[in-house]
Design a protein around this nucleic acid. Structure first.
Lengths: 194, 194, 194, 194
DNA sequence: TCCTAAGCGAGACGGTACGTCTTGTCTTCCA
DNA sequence: TGGAAGACAAGACGTACCGTCTCGCTTAGGA
């Protein structure tokens, strides 16, 4: 555990905070390092003492937020197959609601490809881990696990994306319920006619 | 039908082609307009005679490809609910296979947020249209149509993304089958054990 | 005498006229060929059919004006030494008054070095010719003729320049008288005290 | 006394030096800012940190040279009427001889109108000041002072111009003598015949 | 009177310079 | 020693102007 000067921590926090604020205000590409430094009340040269590129700061900055989410979710680990529990999804949607402006910027029209990809990959990896834990090595899954994982991840990603862009027309719980329904039962039984 | 100088058409084609090539070779952001102009054997100033920004060329260029796909897909319009027909998805995966390198660049690690968002939105809109046609005004759908549409779109997007990043481990047909299975039946019946 | 299409003559006149107008309105360097073409109601490409550069048009255009002056002056040739005749200078100042705006532009703050130099050299050459004619080969001039010529030319140039820049505070005749006085008698006898 | 970074002074010197060298080598208009930057071993953008335009650098650069001349001349201030002292003129011609190539470029065929005008105006203003000091308020001068001043200034300018263009056929002292003779006695008494 | 060459408008294009902006490095000086 | 201040190199940006070219239209002026 490296001992880090208090000032350094302070500077880094300010930089992270500044970027998160700016991302909400304007397109990520349009943000210059000077912008970040100005907002953080820090000299531009100082930025380079801590981060090599804008992206490095972005990853660091977002990681903090994601980590927080993961901690919350892992506190809910149970034995049930992941898709039969709405808890995960509910926590996710609540988390998004809390950082709404940020996710709006990241997932929306001018979203960050890099971040989008990361999120999708992250969710998929998470699902995959849980699926493997569920199926164990015994019962072979009917479809390849990565496919299952990406199916769920894609659905989550798209629903979250839609939800954010449409200003949260449903509550986190409602979203979680619908998500679960779609993933577990599929759309076939929803025709009403069957 | 606007009459366009042959030279103009030629120049624009070269620019579009150049961008598509470069996107495959390096990160979109790293591509300069000079790069594009060089590759297209065109003066940089000439670029600006036709497009205001790199993005404008990108959209134009990709639209051509998407349009082609849409034409193919619409030729398959049938009366069945979209998710019961694998044809659409199959055509999609084949289309991706044909423009593999391009999609690898666009959907991958350093993918373009803008394009990703566009694709997702495009697929969702497409699904939504078909769902509305299917349900008509009579039978109220069990879940809001946008939700259904985005669920499917997200799944398609994520599976396609995964497929591309893992170098097409399955055939387009196999992917289409699995996709349909997941969407229609859901994962609940796949427990294998039940 | 080359036969020139009426249209050609018309085009060239328009271009010359346009340049002369523009020179009065703004700095010569700031005038673009497009400006000239626009003003002349001519396509830019057409400009190049007639003149290679802006300078070429300038010379052609100004030469027309100078030639006119020379004709007037030569009509006054007499046997007297040039500096004892005010006629030349008077004609010159009257000529300048007639093309006032043009000379203001050419001799003023943002005057054209090229044209200034040309004018000075032209006057000097003119003086030199007359001086040589006057001295003949007999009486050796007390000072080298080129020196004498440039002295007079410089004085004319400077006085004209000053006169134009100060909005003609004296009549052409007055200027001519003063010029002659200065050149012939010098300033030594003007001490007022002697 | 403003404190200026040593680097800044160095950069500016290099830029001024570069321009002075280039002016000798080719037409001022043909000199690009890139040329200047290259010659000064400085980045083009750096040029703009110090000067807004080529003209600004030119003025700054030439002013340094002129100032030097003025200092020399003012060290010779005496009570005599300016035109009865050859000292000023002599210093001037010597100064020109020292910066010969530069003046060749500035006064010659492709001279700079702006600079020519400046020089003429500068000399005239200088003369005017001395004339006013000489005449005081008492004796009214026989001719308007500005006219006298411009007469002398024009002569100086033209003789210097001719001298430079003809590769200094006389010594600075000889030029000064002739100049004084012309200005003081005029040409009337030089006819030899009178 | 026709027809044929020339003048010209329109505008795409390669090229060059411009002035601006951002980045990353460096140096100097302060707390 | 961490950071402020800021000069600088590097290089992309979007714009402006230049000179050249090609393509049609029109419009004399000779057949």
């Amino acid at each position: 555990m490296e001992k880090v000067d208090r000032r350094i921590r302070r500077t880094r926090n300010q930089l992270g905070q500044a970027l998160r604020e700016l991302i909400i205000e304007k397109s990520y590409e349009a943000i210059t390092i000077q912008d970040i430094a100005d907002r953080a009340d820090v000299n531009r040269a100082t930025f380079y003492l801590h981060y090599g590129t804008k992206e490095e700061l972005l990853v660091t900055s977002l990681t903090e937020i994601f980590d927080e989410l993961v901690v919350q979710m892992e506190a809910q680990a149970e034995g049930k197959p992941p898709w039969e529990s709405m808890v995960h999804a509910e926590i996710l949607f609540e988390h998004i609601a809390e950082n709404f402006a940020l996710y709006q910027a990241v997932l929306g029209q001018n979203g960050l490809g890099y971040v989008m990809h990361r999120i999708l990959a992250y969710i998929a990896a998470h699902e995959e881990k849980e699926l493997r834990a569920y199926f164990g090595d015994a019962a072979a899954p009917p479809l390849p696990i990565p496919i299952l994982a990406h199916h769920v991840a894609g659905s989550i990603f798209a629903l979250a994306s839609w939800w954010v862009e449409n200003n949260r027309p449903y509550s986190p719980t409602e979203m979680a319920v619908m998500l679960q329904q779609l993933c577990v039962q599929g759309m076939g039984t929803l025709g009403g006619n069957s």
